[in-house]
Computed example of a mutant assay.
Amino acid sequence: MNLVILAAGKNTRLDTGIPKSLVTLNGETLMSRHIRIFKACGVEKFCIISGYGSNKLQAALPLLSKTHNADITILHNERFDLENGFSVFRAKEWVEKNGMNDFFLTMGDHVFDPDFVNEFVEKSSSLENTLQLAVDMPGESNKHIDIDDVTKVLVDSDGFIDSIGKTIPDYNRYDTGLFRLKAEVFNTFQKSFDNEEYTISESVSKLMAGREAKSVLVEGYTWNDVDNPDDLQSTINLMDQNLL
């Protein structure tokens, strides 16, 4: 198993002078936490997509590799001014070079309960769709989520994704920012780019039409997106409560 971590964003809402993935919480950077948790779930190779502050991520690589005894590659996305789908596409050469049939994908500024990750790894292994997205049911365990900023998902009774976006009026799930993708997904991203569509959600929408985008419900665990100062504080609070 292999993981791509997107860490190219410009940090316009949480500008600490470093990539958000290098923010330290409870003595550990968010990036180090990702590598520790996913390696424990069986991930063997990691690819970090850098952009803003790429030199600082590169400087952190030796310690990350040594601490976790992990195979970590950093690829720089020079167009980090574009949306996150373009950063996903930057991993194409790494996926192809290593002969991967599929890979996991997450964001460097997300935080997951280790049991959340483990359940998604187990549940996604038996699915055959091009894209599998870990979703959560709105409820008590995610009441801290910023409802205006979270990506919302509408899924049907079979778990297929019918709609996705931050402003869709009807939804029954939250996008948690954790995916399992087949390598062929890069063809869909290229089609999106041809239409000047650069978000992950826009490529998911294209896969929806062919019933190739399916949700995987993982509920009852804590997760968060550290996107702004309020998110940072809520994550600290969750860690203080031993919920993360």
Score class of each variant (00 low, 15 high):
residue 214 K to S: 09
residue 68 H to D: 12
residue 198 Y to K: 10
residue 77 N to D: 11
residue 59 A to W: 00
residue 192 S to V: 05
residue 22 L to I: 02
residue 240 D to G: 10
residue 6 L to N: 04
residue 195 N to I: 07
residue 40 A to M: 01
residue 105 L to C: 09
residue 116 F to Y: 10
residue 75 L to Y: 03
residue 186 F to Q: 03
residue 94 W to M: 11
residue 107 M to P: 02
residue 29 T to Q: 01
residue 165 G to L: 07
residue 111 V to Y: 01
residue 229 P to M: 06
residue 33 R to H: 05
residue 46 F to W: 00
residue 93 E to R: 08
residue 92 K to Q: 15
residue 220 G to E: 04
residue 193 F to T: 05
residue 181 L to G: 03
residue 100 M to P: 00
residue 120 F to E: 01
residue 106 T to F: 00
residue 135 V to N: 04
residue 26 N to P: 01
residue 17 G to T: 06
residue 184 E to V: 08
residue 53 G to D: 12
residue 156 D to C: 08
residue 204 V to E: 05
residue 31 M to K: 11
residue 189 F to I: 03
residue 95 V to K: 07
residue 214 K to C: 08
residue 157 S to K: 15
residue 148 D to I: 01
residue 208 M to H: 07
residue 161 I to F: 03
residue 14 L to V: 10
residue 180 R to F: 01
residue 188 T to C: 04
residue 31 M to R: 12
residue 26 N to D: 15
residue 83 E to T: 04
residue 20 K to L: 06
residue 93 E to A: 10
residue 179 F to W: 14
residue 238 L to F: 09
residue 95 V to C: 13
residue 151 T to G: 01
residue 30 L to Y: 01
residue 131 L to K: 02
residue 63 L to K: 12
residue 97 K to A: 14
residue 135 V to R: 01
residue 175 D to W: 08
residue 185 V to Q: 08
residue 182 K to P: 13
residue 1 M to P: 10
residue 1 M to Y: 03
residue 103 F to L: 03
residue 65 S to E: 15
residue 27 G to A: 09
residue 48 I to W: 00
residue 141 S to R: 12
residue 64 L to Q: 10
residue 163 S to D: 10
residue 66 K to H: 05
residue 128 E to W: 00
residue 38 F to A: 12
residue 172 N to G: 11
residue 122 E to A: 15
residue 38 F to Q: 11
residue 55 N to K: 15
residue 154 L to F: 09
residue 110 H to F: 02
residue 32 S to P: 02
residue 201 S to I: 15
residue 79 R to C: 09
residue 142 N to C: 09
residue 8 A to E: 12
residue 196 E to L: 09
residue 158 D to F: 03
residue 115 D to E: 14
residue 51 G to D: 06
residue 55 N to A: 15
residue 92 K to R: 14
residue 93 E to F: 00
residue 153 V to M: 04
residue 244 L to A: 11
residue 135 V to P: 10
residue 88 V to L: 06
residue 207 L to W: 06
residue 88 V to G: 04
residue 179 F to L: 15
residue 152 K to C: 09
residue 212 E to H: 00
residue 173 R to M: 12
residue 239 M to L: 13
residue 152 K to T: 12
residue 57 L to C: 03
residue 170 D to C: 13
residue 78 E to S: 10
residue 48 I to L: 01
residue 83 E to K: 13
residue 158 D to I: 03
residue 121 V to R: 14
residue 44 E to N: 07
residue 35 I to Y: 08
residue 23 V to F: 03
residue 49 I to P: 06
residue 150 V to K: 11
residue 244 L to V: 06
